[in-house]
Structure formats: structure tokens, C-alpha cells
Design a protein around this nucleic acid. Sequence first.
DNA 1: ACCTCCATTTTTGTCAACAATATTGGATTC
DNA 2: GAATCCAATATTGTTGACAAAAATGGAGGT
Lengths: 230, 230
Amino acid sequence: MPPGDLSSSSPTRPDQLLERLQQAIVEGELAPGQKLREAELAMTYGTSRGPIRDALRRLEAQRLVTTTPNAGARVVALSEQQLLELYQVREALEGMTCRLAAVNMSQAQIDRLGALLETHEKEIERRAGREYFRQHGDLDFHYQIAVGCGNQLLATAVCSDHYQLMRLYRRKFSAHRGRPRRALTEHQRIFAAVEERDGELAEILMRRHISAARRNIERSIERRAKDEAK
Amino acid sequence: MPPGDLSSSSPTRPDQLLERLQQAIVEGELAPGQKLREAELAMTYGTSRGPIRDALRRLEAQRLVTTTPNAGARVVALSEQQLLELYQVREALEGMTCRLAAVNMSQAQIDRLGALLETHEKEIERRAGREYFRQHGDLDFHYQIAVGCGNQLLATAVCSDHYQLMRLYRRKFSAHRGRPRRALTEHQRIFAAVEERDGELAEILMRRHISAARRNIERSIERRAKDEAK
DNA sequence: ACCTCCATTTTTGTCAACAATATTGGATTC
DNA sequence: GAATCCAATATTGTTGACAAAAATGGAGGT
């Protein structure tokens, strides 16, 4: 078997490839805007162009790469405009997941969510407020809400379709000082609404939470633009 | 060139394939749940399996087919559960498009939207209230709102990612008697809010509009379940 | 008669070669 | 010296062949 192989066992090969490429993009190993040559990737990952093309198509569906006909694939370029657009989509989608989660989550799921927030709180204290956002997957508050909302389509949209893209953006425009603690407080209020099974309130709070994050980024973009103007 | 060829000109081949398969699925030519054999499709459309696989991956992203590893692709099965889920996603997404459209649409776009509604009104009178929903693409009210919202990502989600799926469902659970006229009235009220640049109201009305359609379907499902129980 | 197991067949997954298209670099011209 | 065109190169698109996995159908046993 070739050197850069995927070894191991169960998940199918394109799945493994997808995962590795996702990671490479989100971690910044493959830079934004970088050209993705099929032959090169095939060599690197010890396979042929077929499975690579397959994986690239899936990455395209997740918006992690853009493809132009006859000119190949590139890692998505992180325009500020698109970042703000993503937050508006999240506001709509996650607002709805939250409303449904309040109604549909089992008590056991709610308990787990509460426990998750407590570990987050301790994390923040330990790290003096830095880097709250670095959790992902099962450890992510938003992720858990989506999983618990009871709507498979919606959960997939939040947790698969847009999730990696969001992680990527988070890395770039990483959390500002003071924001993590604030975000935790907002999470706790959302949790309270979910716990009381108040879907309407849970939706409103989640939307405000995401909207606040968006405006935060908006400001930080403006600020940077001014700095550069000088 | 083979018989079932794609002839013509510019758009790339997988694009053409995608379009033809979309149409075949939405029109019911390929039945829900039907197995899609790559070799067979390749023969039918006068190409090889490579481009077909490509097109199938894109259809998967649009949720028009489901793929299981080593077992191939099937036309999406129309479960009632999933239909209701789709309406919840639409409520979230299109609510947001409508809010943004009210703020961002140009006056010219709004004028066109108004004209569109007038033609819809005449259509309904002509057909005595049947089949209002059969418009699609540029002629679709929801589609126009999404295009005009100014958020590319959101517009793509509504107009590409989920649009064909929605058309498919519409065909199956087609408009009920009396509903078309009602839907038009709701569209007109949404339009009024957009025209007044009232984003908040526009969102609320759009969400109610979609939510009403969902509950309508919910009832019709219940009714059918009772009929079958007898 | 029904179920289980195995061989056969069909179908998907992977690969390497070929064709078509885009990109690059250099030579030529103004 | 700069711009333009053309040839050479590299890259994507497509194809058919092969490998691996799943579905099928029949024989044998209970």
C-alpha cells in the first residue's frame, strides 16, 4: 500500500479523503485560494484521481472549495462579505433549530447540554477567558442544539453542510477579547429557555446571539479597514 | 454521436446531465425510490459512467438522490416526515430572505415583483383558482424574493440547493382547492411589506405563509391516514 | 414448504490511458 | 521595451478495463 495511505478500516475511502481534506483546509494547511490539482492530491493521499474528484465534489457542496469548469478547484477564498452572509444563514437556520430543540429535546439531552455548559465555564476560568470557541463537534453548544432539534434535514444543514465552513471562518476571525465570557452567558440564557421548553424565546435569544457575533465581526472589519487607510 | 445525446453547445456536460436528471426526477419520469444504475444512465444519456457519477454527486447535494456506499443511488423517497422538515427549513431560510429583500431589493426589482403578482392574479381568475403553484424559476414569487435578498449564499440555498426538491414535493402533494387564492393573498401582503421596506413584518408574514402551507399538508396527511384506517 | 448457504451475476469502486481545454513561456512585431 | 500571438506544457474531462463488493437465484437441508 502506498506511503500516504489511509490505512485502517471501515469508513469508505472517499469519506476518509473528505475528512482529511476538510481538516487540511480548516487547519489552514491548504491555504485559502490555493489551487487544488487533482494529480497532486492523488499522489499525496496515495490514491488515484477518481476518488479525489469525488471528494472535491463533496467539498464543493460544503462550500469549502469552489470549482470552475475546465479550470479546477480552489480552496474557498474568505471574503468578508461572504463571512457576513454565512452568519445571516446561521441566524435563520440555528434560530429554527433552537426553537425546535426547546420543544423536542429529551430531558436526558437537556441534562447533557447543561453539563456541557458547566465544563465550558470551567474551561474559561482556567484559561482566563481566552479561546472559548475552540471546541468542536460533539463538544460544541450549537452543534448539540442542532442534533437535538429533531429535524434531520435542518441538523444536517447546520452540522454537515455549513459546519466545516464555519469552523474555518472561526479560525480566521478568531474570538475577540472579552467575547468568550459574553458568549458563554448568552449560551446559558439560551439553555435556560430550552430547559423551560420556551421555543419562541429560545429562537429569539439564539438569533440575537448569532447576530451579535456578526456585528462584532462587522465592527472588527471596519476597524481594520480604518487602520489600513492610515 | 450516440442517440440520446445532449447535443447543443455551451454549458458543460455534467451541467447538462444534472439538468436532465433533475427534470426527470421532478417530472416523475424517474420514480421515487427507484434505483439509479450508473451504467444504465450512461447508456440512456449517451455518455460514460464518469460524468454520471459526477452528476449523481451533485444531485445528492440537492437531496434529490440518496447514496449508500457500495449500493448506489436512489431517487429520494418522499416520506411525509421529511416533507414537513423541508417546510421548517424553508420557513427559516425564506423568512430571512424576505427580511433582507425588503431592505436590499432595488426599486426596479420590487416593481417587477409587483408585476409578477398581477400576472398571477389574472392566471388564477382564468383558471378558476386551480394550479396557481405551477410556476417555477424566474416566475416563482419565492424565487424572486430570494434572488433579490442580496445574500448570495442564502439565495443559492433557496434557489439551487433546495429548490428542485421543493418542486418535486409540490407535484406530489399538489395544491388543495381554495388554497391558491389564499396563497396569492398572502403573497400580496408580503409584497406590501417589502414595498414599504418593512423587513421585520415581511419576515413574519413569509414565515406565517410557509407555516400555513405546512400545517395544511399536515392536516391532509392526517385526513388521509384516517381514510386508510377505515 | 421454508430457510440457509453458496456460487453466479450484477453493480459499484478504482485505476490508468487518452482527448480536450486552459495556462505558461518565449519569440516576434510594433 | 511592451504587447500580442503561438507553440509547448500542464491540467482537467472522459473513457473503457479491471477489482471489490453487494444482490440474486438456486441447491440442499431441515
